[in-house]
């Protein structure tokens, strides 16, 4: 069970460092995996978490493994090309690294075997190449190992892994377990088990799921949370609901008043907001962890967007969730404070 920060204030004032902030990404350093369905704004959320962390004085790196580099646009740097670059335009102490998983596999194995000539011999052998090509989960494993080492070597206080979007998002987190089960004994199995333990330990590895309040992303977020429970016996630390349409003005309420002149914009707004509300309710019914909502903002992809999302997050983490008519946000927090975790398995 993760320790919950003592929550003394319902309206966390802007810019305070942590106390009262309900989610672990803001209150502690360490390793966080940001995962979710493609197209929900996962990279923007990873960048926002990175900035929030760096702003609190923690030396932070956001690691990207998507084959198409795009995080650098959000962080305002050149493409990383595998190097660690500082995103000083956005925040001091915030870094970015893009990884090519295959290169990481080779490096991790080099480091484990240590003797250069021997490494080259092994790597040149067809058995090895066959193994690297054919072994699913190996690349995921190497990426996690890389992140673990960045922390272990104390090069960073916080490592945020922007996990690759897949149809089955849990695969990165499950990879170590799958590999360790399949490989069984042997040194490789040992590495896999070490990493599997790391990923399963909420004290050492935070899991942030990003979603949008629409049907498919919500379905996938729920599946992810369930699989985390089933396979890793843990739960996600935080759910970020990104891209929420703003609440309707009072009087044009979400209830949907059909009277009056046709207004296509208002109609679209009302109905997309209604979808948001419906899906937030669906999430709130079973979601086992903390939730943060982020608004859809009229800002293009770039450092300005990340700064704005960070500001919205910090000003009041639950603001954008608005009144969804369900026990999200404060009511849920109150219940949890009363010692009843909402919908725990």
């Amino acid at each position: 069970m993760t320790e919950r920060p003592h929550d003394t204030s319902d309206a966390a004032p802007s810019g305070t460092s942590g106390s009262g902030a309900p989610d672990p990404t803001l209150t502690r350093a360490g390793f966080f995996v940001v995962t979710g369905k493609g197209g929900v704004g996962k990279s923007a959320v990873a960048a926002t978490l990175g900035r929030a962390s760096a702003r609190r004085g923690r030396r932070t790196v956001v690691v990207e493994v998507d084959p198409r580099e795009n995080l650098h646009q959000l962080l305002g740097t050149a493409p990383s090309g595998g190097e660690i670059l500082e995103a000083s335009d956005l925040e001091q102490g915030l870094f970015l690294q893009h990884l090519k998983p295959r290169a990481v596999v080779d490096r991790v194995i080099e480091e484990r075997v240590k003797v250069g000539a021997v490494v080259r011999k092994v790597q040149a052998s067809i058995v090895y190449q066959h193994f690297v090509e054919g072994c699913p989960g190996l690349e995921e494993l190497a990426v996690l190992e890389h992140a673990r080492r960045l922390l272990a070597e104390r090069r960073f206080d916080t490592v945020i892994l922007d996990a690759p979007a897949t149809g089955h998002g849990v695969s990165l987190l499950r990879a170590p377990l799958v590999v360790s089960e399949a490989v069984g004994e042997g040194p490789f199995g040992t590495i896999a088990r070490e990493i599997a333990d790391l990923v399963a330990d909420p004290a050492r590895c935070g899991v942030v799921i990003v979603t949008q309040a629409e049907e498919m992303p919500v379905q996938e977020a729920r599946d992810l949370a369930r699989m985390l429970g089933e396979h890793l016996d843990r739960r996600p630390d935080l759910l970020v609901v990104n891209g929420l349409y703003p609440p309707l003005p009072r009087g044009e309420g979400d209830a949907g008043d059909e009277a009056g002149a046709p207004d296509a914009l208002l109609d679209l707004w009302r109905r997309r907001r209604a979808i948001n509300r419906r899906e937030l309710r669906r999430l709130a019914e079973t979601w086992p962890g903390e939730m943060v909502g982020l608004p859809l903002l009229p800002i293009g992809r770039g450092t300005e967007l990340v700064a704005a999302l960070d500001a919205c997050w910090s000003s009041d983490p639950y603001r954008a969730l608005g009144s969804v008519g369900a026990k999200t946000g404060r009511s849920a927090r109150r219940e949890r404070r009363a010692g009843r975790p909402g919908g725990a398995k």
């Binding site: 090895y128 490989v183 040194p187 199995g189």
Partner: peptide, 21 residues
């Protein structure tokens, strides 16, 4: 593929797994 390499492969990957594969 002499015993030395076998030993190294075992160290890196694990023969048991190689055999399964």
């Amino acid at each position: 593929l002499d015993r030395k390499i076998e030993h190294l492969l075992d160290r890196v990957i694990g023969l048991e797994f190689l055999r399964e594969m």
